[in-house]
Design a protein around this nucleic acid. Structure first.
Length: 434
RNA sequence: GUGGGCGUAGCUCAGUUGGUUAGAGCUCCGGAUUGUGAUUCCGGAGGUCGUGGGUUCGAGUCCCAUCGUCCACCCCA
């Protein structure tokens, strides 16, 4: 078993029986994004390592210990993308999309992080990403949060908790950091080991510690929101007012600190209590400094990423409705003449209804075996064409789902007969001439 | 990187204090007057018991290692 060829740890195959829900998610997401004027932007899976270091932050866990980094044959250090925003910003700058203009874009695809897999966490996972550039005001913050809310509604998933916070500007954050560090130092002995370490490297991270003793201390820590600059405070109030107006429920969580360095002002997170420990399904925020930091003209930005595996897990758990992709018709055929006639008939049906899902039996087999396959395929109707039918130029239409008795239909009438049963419209009478 | 649970047929699992040719259900294939599925009956195929060592007359069962997997921590979508 250990020598068997198998997939890389944490990198999963998507099997046909699970593909329907993914296709549905992608289709609905594309629709919702388009409904808000967002257009797709695709970027490579591999970028220069340096891009991610600069965008995500040198001292973050993602960069320090989770990136798949390698040298290409030219000796250049490349990395599999651990998130989508960095590549999108790079592409935006490179193609002049972010210079003095507004852009609304979305992207999706696999991202890679070298972590121990667990429920809702994989080494290759997939994100849906939405970004808006060149829009500094809270109106667009409200817009993308509303967009996410609409996506949940369209997909038929619920039970989320939306938490929001403001990190202010880099300057106000620095002032807060000083105040927080002072406070935490006065309780340093009581903090857990991890938090003591973070006190030096990234004190804001202590805020969302899960250790009870540390949480207790943090409860009385100075609040980030009390240290906001006037403009950020105003921005945050406008955001809250906008969400209230739309009737989108949220909780202000002053201890919500996002993991990546580039966030400024608005940050938010949609979580669920239905997926185990990895509860964040969608998270994002504003990153007004990132574009300039990566070498572009100073351009505000805001965006979020959805963990598709987590959202899919939630859809499955809540049994969100997903359109079936099972065939509508399974075409059974046997006998020399009949088999040939069936091919022509099947092709004519496909000509008439391009969206029709019809499986033509292949590999022979007795009628019983073919009907068994028909049933297993999930098809609603079986068409049966044997030598007897071929001689009479008819085909038997048989319901596999208890919708009446089998009937014999002449070839020219087949379209007319099937149309109402499958909710399709028939226009041209079928004509088979051999 | 740390900790815990679990690895027996394609899938879900039995397998008693170590004891003969390792079982069941589902799936698949075939059959029940030769052209009618999903129900029923009969039959068949399918397993180096994750891998490698060790203890023993004898190991799926005990011990060690290793790999895989699941869950949690760290962190994150």
């Amino acid at each position: 078993m250990s020598q068997k060829i198998q997939s890389i740890r944490g990198m999963n195959d998507l099997l046909p029986q699970d593909a329907d829900v993914w296709q549905h998610l992608q289709a609905i997401a594309a629709e919702v994004f388009a409904a808000y004027g967002y257009r797709e932007l695709r970027v490579p899976v591999v970028e220069r390592t340096d891009l991610f270091k600069r965008a995500v932050g040198e001292v973050t866990d993602v960069v320090e210990k989770e990136m798949y980094t390698f040298e290409d044959r030219g000796g250049e250090s490349l990395s599999l993308r651990p998130e989508l925003t960095a590549g999108i910003v790079r592409a935006g700058i490179e193609h002049g999309l972010l210079y003095n203009q507004q852009q609304r874009v979305w992207s999706s695809g696999p991202v890679f992080r070298y972590e121990r897999p667990q429920a809702g966490r994989y080494r290759q996972f997939h994100q849906l990403d939405v970004e808006a550039f060149g829009l500094p005001g809270p109106d667009v913050d409200i817009e993308i949060i509303a967009l996410a809310a609409r996506l949940w509604q369209r997909l038929g998933v619920s039970g989320f908790r939306l938490q929001i916070n403001s990190l202010g500007t880099p300057e106000s954050r620095l002032r807060y950091r000083a105040a927080l560090t002072d406070y935490l130092r006065s309780h340093e002995a009581a903090l857990d080991d991890d938090s003591q370490r973070r006190l030096a490297s990234n004190p804001l991270r202590v805020l969302d510690s899960k250790v009870p003793a540390t949480r207790e201390i943090v409860t009385h820590a100075p609040s980030l929101l009390d240290h906001l600059d006037a403009e950020s405070a105003e921005h945050f109030i406008a955001l809250r007012r906008g969400l209230d107006l739309l009737g989108i429920g949220y909780q202000v969580n002053p201890r919500l600190v996002r993991g990546l360095d580039y966030y400024t002002r608005t940050v938010f997170e949609w979580t669920t209590d239905q997926l185990g420990a990895q509860d964040a399904v969608c998270a994002g925020g504003r990153y007004d400094g990132l574009v300039a930091h990566l070498g572009g003209a100073s351009t505000p930005g805001i965006g979020f990423a959805i963990g598709m595996e987590r959202l899919i897990a939630l859809m499955n758990l809540q049994q969100a409705p997903v359109p079936a992709h099972a065939p509508q018709i399974y075409f059974c055929r046997f006998g020399l003449q009949a088999e040939t006639a069936a091919v022509a008939l099947a092709e004519q049906l496909r000509d008439e209804w391009p969206a029709l899902r019809l499986v033509l039996n292949a590999g022979g087999g007795k009628l019983g075996a073919q009907l068994k396959r028909a049933d297993a395929s999930g098809a609603r109707f079986a068409l049966i064409l044997g030598d007897d039918e071929a001689a009479q130029r008819t085909v038997q239409v048989k319901s596999l789902r208890g919708e009446g008795e089998p009937v014999s239909i002449g070839w020219p009438d087949l379209l007319q007969h099937l149309a109402p049963r499958l909710g399709l419209s028939a226009t041209v009478p079928i004509d088979i001439t051999e």
